[in-house]
Amino acid sequence: MPVRRGHVAPQNTFLDTIIRKFEGQSRKFIIANARVENCAVIYCNDGFCELCGYSRAEVMQRPCTCDFLHGPRTQRRAAAQIAQALLGAEERKVEIAFYRKDGSCFLCLVDVVPVKNEDGAVIMFILNFEVVMEKDMVGSPAHDTNHRGPPTSWLAPGRAKTFRLKLPALLALTARESSVRSGGAGGAGAPGAVVVDVDLTPAAPSSESLALDEVTAMDNHVAGLGPAEERRALVGPGSPPRSAPGQLPSPRAHSLNPDASGSSCSLARTRSRESCASVRRASSADDIEAMRAGVLPPPPRHASTGAMHPLRSGLLNSTSDSDLVRYRTISKIPQITLNFVDLKGDPFLASPTSDREIIAPKIKERTHNVTEKVTQVLSLGADVLPEYKLQAPRIHRWTILHYSPFKAVWDWLILLLVIYTAVFTPYSAAFLLKETEEGPPATECGYACQPLAVVDLIVDIMFIVDILINFRTTYVNANEEVVSHPGRIAVHYFKGWFLIDMVAAIPFDLLI
């Protein structure tokens, strides 16, 4: 008679799926529990143990900040960024110097990925580790590398530091407007667009060049630039800015003055950032001319202004700041037409079709709590990747769950009947059967004279019903998954307890 339990259901295979997918890609990662103190490590794979030199037993239950890997060259700011990422709910990448158990130093890129439950609360953290440099290539500990984003994938490793954006290309926007319009339909740009040429040739750093990471940081200074100062900065030398009595002219307006920039070969870094931020506020060169004239017309309804409409929906549905990093990277690809469009465009503009998908598509409701890094690593669709929660398995109709209350009560009843059979069957065979043979035949009273025979008949009927119930009862397979398919249940029961239950259900007393 089957006594099969499996009270692990309803099970959740999400954690096993993450481990299996990460292991298949030869990654070095740990999984931490966000619900406990210090976000203790609950799993670390073999790749991480080989990377740091510690065994799994030495890593388990330690804080996922990996303070046991810190050393003299470990930056405090990087460690603080990892700790801050564990307090938030967004994906974050941090470069930090770690030390192995043998004392060797290596520069590592740590990717902190939160995993949320159905309520939107962070319950786990996945920390992925990628070695960037070994100890002989690690720089000085005073050099802070965590304020910069990861290198873009479309640049060669040897040319990542030679990417320079020439400031004269930004200063000569109005001069290039006529050349853009003359391109017409034969050019790649839309009317009114501004073409910015980027020099990728390796050259020595000069005062006129600005690194790509500095251009990325310009967006942080746009908020500090007032509207009046932006307007004066875009007017140009024809209309000098008016300053109040006793007030000095704005240095932001002076930063885009061609006369002032041409007199000296070098520009201050602050002026460069502010000038680029001011130019980015204009949607095209037409807006710059309109600002000089004193009238700013409404933005025209053409394809170039609607190019950012799908980007707005993608940004609203993005799951991490990696989408913004990807957008900034692609927006700086050289030799393309940049349409400086305000994100607050007309909502009635139709979304044009684009061959290049900048932001990841909208994630469906079932995966809105899973970050983009987890979705990318697992390579699963929205119909396959579940949320991290207890999910009731989908069972067929008329199927009994093996952990249901009805099955528990039924098993206790069958257990009592088995005990009765084990006690009274030998007793009936030894004593009652002998008395029946010696006594007179009682054929007239039937079952009324033999109450134990009636009980034995009921017990046999219950055993037959138990066999039928076992054909529709779920079970737990070797992978700790609840199986509810009727065919698989029948095959599993035939290979197991079916023969024993059938022999126990045969009414031998009635056959004798």
Rank of each mutant, 00 (worst) to 15 (best):
V94I: 13
A190S: 05
N45P: 01
K161F: 04
S255I: 05
T375D: 03
E58Q: 12
D119G: 06
M218P: 15
P352D: 03
R252K: 13
V295N: 07
L200M: 06
D16C: 06
G47C: 01
S255K: 15
R148N: 14
P361E: 07
D323L: 06
L165N: 10
E208W: 03
C39E: 01
P63H: 03
L225F: 04
D259G: 07
N257Y: 11
E90F: 13
I30H: 01
C44Y: 01
C108K: 01
H309S: 11
F22N: 07
K362T: 12
P361N: 14
L170Q: 12
S304D: 09
C39A: 14
P299A: 04
V110N: 01
E274I: 05
A169K: 13
F106S: 01
P72S: 05
R76L: 10
S178Q: 11
P2F: 06
A83W: 14
S261P: 13
S264P: 04
C49F: 01
F125Q: 12
A285M: 15
S278Y: 09
I330K: 13
L87E: 14
P141D: 15
E208N: 09
T65S: 07
C49L: 14
A78T: 04
R62G: 14
R292M: 15
T201I: 04
A185F: 06
V341P: 15
A9E: 12
G24I: 06
A253V: 14
S331D: 15
I123W: 11
D342K: 07
M60W: 01
M124N: 06
L107V: 15
V122M: 09
Y327S: 12
D259T: 14
S250P: 15
F129I: 01
P347F: 04
V36C: 15
V180D: 11
M291G: 06
S140R: 07
H221K: 15
E118P: 08
M124H: 08
V215A: 13
V59L: 10
T216L: 09
P114F: 01
E372C: 07
V115P: 01
S255F: 06
D219R: 10
D136L: 05
G294D: 11
A204Q: 06
D199E: 08
L155Y: 06
P151E: 06
Q75A: 14
P297E: 08
P2Y: 15
D197K: 03
V36E: 13
E208Q: 09
D287G: 08
V94T: 14
Q247F: 15
K135G: 10
R100A: 06
K364R: 14
Y43N: 01
R73M: 06
V196W: 01
R27H: 08
V374M: 07
N38W: 01
R326A: 13
N33K: 04
L109T: 08
G187Q: 15
F125C: 06
A57F: 08
R301E: 14
P141S: 06
L109I: 08
Q25F: 06
M218G: 10
E208I: 05
R356P: 12
N369L: 09
A34R: 14
P150L: 08
D67T: 07
R4H: 15
A290L: 03
P241Y: 15
L324Y: 13
D102E: 07
A350I: 09
R56Y: 03
E95D: 14
T353D: 13
I358S: 09
M124W: 13
S320D: 15
N45L: 01
Y54M: 01
S275Q: 09
L248I: 15
G149S: 07
P168S: 15
E134F: 03
S26C: 07
A382R: 13
P2N: 06
L165A: 15
Q11A: 15
G262R: 11
K332A: 07
S26L: 07
A78K: 05
S354T: 15
E91G: 09
L380R: 04
S239T: 12
L212C: 06
D67A: 08
V370M: 14
P72T: 04
L86T: 10
E289R: 08
S320K: 09
Q75H: 07
V196K: 04
L212D: 14
V113Q: 07
V341R: 15
C44K: 01
C66N: 01
